[in-house]
């Protein structure tokens, strides 16, 4: 039996705005495995942000059920405070939410709301900073505004990690970062997932990001779940994502095109190494044929 930390059943969500209604989610049923990294992908307006906001009760279902680590998010009632501790959420450009004078105080904001002892708060903050690669002795007393964009983003991540969440939801976490900022962010994120066993849920429209990080993909379009599977399976199906306004990662795109041109390259090739290997093999066979 697999252990599902999140299970969504027949979830509908309708926005009410004055006399007008807009269906944002239609009949979503999905499960996310504990400790995995799931990515929810789709274009702007596909409903992906609406969906993840159900996971920590920022939004409530219009109908259907969402069970998160044993807590039910219902249309009314329920203890959302517990839920918000268990589910950390990082929105787009999270560095914009920093406001304290020091990195320490900012990361401590959440834990202090939990009425923990001073000592416990301290332990959590230091640990969170350590986890995101900002050693406390150098960074704790600095102002967040002196740091680079990538570091500020990691401070925001630490602020969420200090709540000791079991699930971490990230909305477009690396938009606007350069190559270094990105690589570092991925590194620390994977560490959180592997070392602390936190389930990571990624909301993204960047397929390269998704390809490097995620175990499982959920494709949303117009509020419906249109596809799910491993990145290898989904990117291996050719240009299937185009119909939903998405693109494959550049490497998959290249391989798909080669395949279309009649090259005998298997579609489930996914990493650079595999591609290299496959292409070299093709090259050798081609040579052999020429020699024969």
């Amino acid at each position: 039996m697999t252990d599902h930390i999140i299970s969504v059943k027949n979830l509908y969500h309708t926005y009410q705005s004055g006399p007008l209604q807009k269906a944002a989610l239609l009949d979503i049923t999905m499960e996310i495995e504990r400790g995995s990294c799931a990515a929810i992908i789709g274009i702007t307006g596909s409903g992906k942000s609406t969906l993840v906001q159900h996971f920590n009760g920022l939004l409530r279902p219009t109908s259907g059920t969402v069970a998160v680590d044993g807590v039910n998010v219902q249309a009314r009632g329920g203890d959302l405070k517990v839920l918000r501790q268990r589910v950390g959420m990082l929105f787009q450009f999270p560095e914009a939410q920093l406001f304290e004078h020091t990195v320490y105080a900012d990361v401590a904001f959440g834990p202090r709301r939990l009425k923990l002892s001073k000592r416990e708060v301290r332990t959590r903050v230091l640990q969170a900073l350590e986890t995101v690669g900002l050693p406390p002795h150098t960074y704790a007393q600095r102002s967040p505004f002196e740091l680079s964009g990538g570091q500020r983003r990691r401070v925001a991540l630490a602020g969420v990690l200090a709540m000791l969440p079991k699930i971490l939801v990230l909305d477009e976490p690396t938009t606007g970062l350069d190559a270094d900022g990105r690589t570092e962010f991925y590194y620390y994120l994977q560490r959180v997932q592997q070392k602390d066993g936190v389930t990571v849920i990624l909301v993204s429209h960047d397929m390269s990001e998704v390809a490097t990080l995620a175990d499982q993909l959920f494709v949303l379009h117009n509020g419906r779940l249109v596809m799910q599977g491993t990145p290898r399976a989904i990117f291996g199906q050719g240009n299937i994502l185009h119909q939903w306004g998405l693109t494959e990662p550049p490497l998959s795109e290249l391989l798909i095109q080669l395949h279309k041109q009649g090259l005998a390259i298997p579609l489930d090739v996914f990493t650079l190494e595999e591609a290299l290997h496959a292409l070299q093999e093709i090259e050798t066979t081609r040579h052999e044929k020429e020699n024969v």
Binding site: D178, A179, P249, P250
Partner: peptide, 20 residues
Amino acid sequence: LKLAIPEPIELVSRLRAAGL
């Protein structure tokens, strides 16, 4: 120079290194 190398470019470079 801290620039990300797109995978297709890297693939080409590696293929070239392998003698293609």
